[in-house]
Amino acid sequence: MKIFIYSLLIFVYAVLSGCYEHFPLKQDITRTQNEFLNQDGSKVKFPELTRGKITLMAMVYTHCPDICPMTTHNMQLIESKLSKDELEKVRFVVITFDPDRDTPDVLKKFAEIRDIDFSRWSFLSGNKQNTKEVMLKFDIKAVPADSSYDADGNLSYYIVHTDRLSLIDQNGLLRKKYVGSIVDVNEVVNDIKYLLE
């Protein structure tokens, strides 16, 4: 009998303390704002531009040969599974951690090749300090790997980085992290729908 009562008390404590909440995270990301240029070269502040929207955010770089294109594609698949009404309340944000090469023009071309709708998407490039602050906030690592020079003498390099999609709710709280390139698209869609309820 004592074991049953003890188990019941642990269960009640876990429920009351929020251990069984749908999302594992509740991190406020709105305390600091970072300035970026969007794909049109206009100044915006992140996360201010997502205010009142459920946001799916990724950090990528356009010279990435594998993970970043797959992550961006998965974001598009998620977008395709949401209704028009749901999409009115959702924002997609892509921030580069390679601002030296990923200028607004480069990001815009990267998006246009993929037929991305800029009414719902923002591609952001910032200075190194703002980029580092956002990376720190989202616990994203990026380290330049092997480098070389092309035939024109331009430095070419790849970046080893965290493979991440982040889900932010309407109140600016980071709620969940996913592995961006292999994410279960339906899981993210269901999580967005849960936040929309």
Rank of each mutant, 00 (worst) to 15 (best):
M1S: 15
I5H: 14
Y6L: 15
L9I: 15
L9A: 15
I10G: 07
V12N: 08
A14W: 06
V15L: 15
L16T: 03
L16G: 15
S17D: 14
Y20N: 08
E21R: 13
H22E: 09
F23E: 03
P24Y: 02
P24D: 13
L25D: 09
L25H: 10
I29S: 06
T30F: 07
T32K: 15
T32A: 13
Q33S: 12
N34P: 02
N34E: 14
Q39A: 12
D40M: 10
V44G: 11
F46Q: 06
P47V: 05
E48S: 10
E48L: 10
L49V: 13
G52L: 02
M57H: 06
M59A: 07
M59C: 09
V60F: 15
T62H: 10
T62G: 04
C64I: 06
C64S: 11
I67G: 09
C68E: 10
P69Q: 02
T72L: 14
L77F: 08
K84Q: 10
K84L: 09
K84I: 00
E86C: 02
E86Y: 05
L87V: 00
E88N: 10
K89L: 07
R91G: 09
R91S: 13
I95E: 11
T96W: 13
P99S: 11
P99L: 11
R101A: 10
V106N: 12
V106D: 09
L107A: 04
F110R: 02
I113G: 03
I113H: 12
R114K: 13
D117I: 01
S119M: 01
R120A: 00
R120W: 00
G126V: 02
G126A: 09
K128F: 11
N130Y: 09
L136A: 07
I140F: 05
K141M: 09
K141W: 07
A142S: 12
V143G: 05
P144Y: 07
P144S: 03
A145S: 15
S147D: 12
S147G: 14
S147E: 14
D150G: 01
G153I: 04
N154M: 04
L155P: 02
L155Y: 06
S156M: 15
Y158L: 13
I159S: 11
V160H: 14
H161G: 06
H161M: 04
T162L: 07
D163K: 08
R164T: 10
L165W: 10
S166C: 08
S166K: 02
I168R: 08
I168C: 03
I168S: 05
D169E: 01
G172N: 05
G172C: 06
L174C: 00
L174H: 11
R175F: 06
V179S: 08
V179Y: 11
G180L: 00
D184S: 07
N186S: 11
V188D: 03
N190I: 00
I192L: 06
K193G: 01
L196I: 01
E197H: 11
